[in-house]
Amino acid sequence: MPDASLFKGSLVYLTPGRVAESGLWARWQRDSQWMRLLDSEPPRPQPEAHHRKEDEQAGLPDGNGFGFCFRTLADDQLVGFVYVGILSWVHRDAIVAIGIGDRALTGKGYGTDAMRLALRYAFSELDLHRVTLNVFSNNERAIRSYEKAGFKHEGRLRQAMLRDGARLDIIYMGILRDEWLKMNANENETR
């Protein structure tokens, strides 16, 4: 049965998206450089209650957002979050966001693995047609990870951000259902 492994990757697995409960937001958001990679809005540290509310919204099963945390399979360590947000049910279009707040846990393939799980969720559980993401042009490690997960470049908003006096682009990437199916053809056959 394919769904037996819907939440289980090769390095990480998806768990309920209760980031606030874990107290991790409070720790992560002290790292303003991380906050700056996550969002173009000015970083604004928020109290726990704020994040609890966000968690609740992301966890509503009938809503337009599907949020998860992900943990290592090896030692059950909390690594980060991944979120699939529906842009339109009519067009079957969604946007995905992912973050690893602890720098010691980056560069180990956890994020790429979690993104693959998010895509599997988007295409095989939600039956979407495409998934979008955006990433800032200075976040090269993230861009490489997204390429590995199967995203193709769809363009860039030129000079859309101003950071420390320099202009950055916002890069958009996307993956279509057919592309995802083709990429996973071998895996699907063995199931």
Partner: peptide, 11 residues
């Protein structure tokens, strides 16, 4: 100028 083309985003 065209900057981003969200392929097949509309049905």
């Amino acid at each position: 100028v065209e900057e981003v083309r969200r392929r097949e985003a509309l049905w």
